[in-house]
Computed example of a mutant assay.
Amino acid sequence: MDVGSIAQLSTTMAETGTRNEVGMAVLKKAQDIQSSTATALIEALPPVPSAPNLPSHLGNRINTTA
Rank of each mutant, 00 (worst) to 15 (best):
G17R: 12
P55Q: 01
L9I: 04
P47R: 02
E15C: 00
P55W: 01
E21Y: 02
V48H: 10
E15V: 00
A38E: 12
S5F: 07
Q8W: 05
M13N: 02
H57K: 12
V22S: 05
N20K: 15
G4M: 13
P46E: 03
P52V: 04
A7D: 04
T11L: 08
A38G: 10
V26N: 08
N60R: 08
G59F: 00
P55M: 01
G4Q: 15
I6S: 07
S35H: 14
A14N: 01
Q31L: 10
V22G: 03
M24T: 14
P47N: 04
I6E: 12
L9W: 07
R61S: 08
A44L: 01
A25Y: 05
A40E: 03
A51S: 10
R61T: 11
V48K: 11
A51G: 09
T39F: 07
E43N: 14
I62K: 02
I33N: 04
G17M: 09
L41Q: 05
K28R: 15
N53G: 02
V48S: 08
H57E: 14
N53Q: 02
T18K: 06
A51M: 12
K29Y: 14
G17A: 13
I62G: 03
N20C: 15
G59A: 00
I62H: 03
T37I: 15
N63R: 06
L45C: 04
T11C: 07
D32Y: 10
P49L: 05
Q34P: 07
A7P: 00
T11E: 08
G17S: 11
D32G: 12
R61Y: 12
D32N: 14
D32A: 14
N20F: 15
G4C: 12
D32F: 14
M24G: 07
G59N: 01
A40G: 03
A14H: 00
K29I: 12
R61G: 04
V48E: 10
R19H: 13
D32P: 01
P55V: 00
A40K: 03
A30P: 01
G17D: 11
L58K: 04
Q34L: 14
V3Y: 09
L58A: 03
H57F: 11
N20M: 15
P49F: 02
N60F: 06
T39G: 07
Q34C: 14
S35G: 13
T11D: 08
L9Y: 04
A30G: 12
M24W: 12
L41W: 03
L58T: 06
S10Q: 03
K28Y: 09
S56W: 09
A25L: 05
A40P: 01
A25N: 04
S35P: 09
P55F: 01
N53H: 03
A44K: 03
N60C: 05
A7N: 03
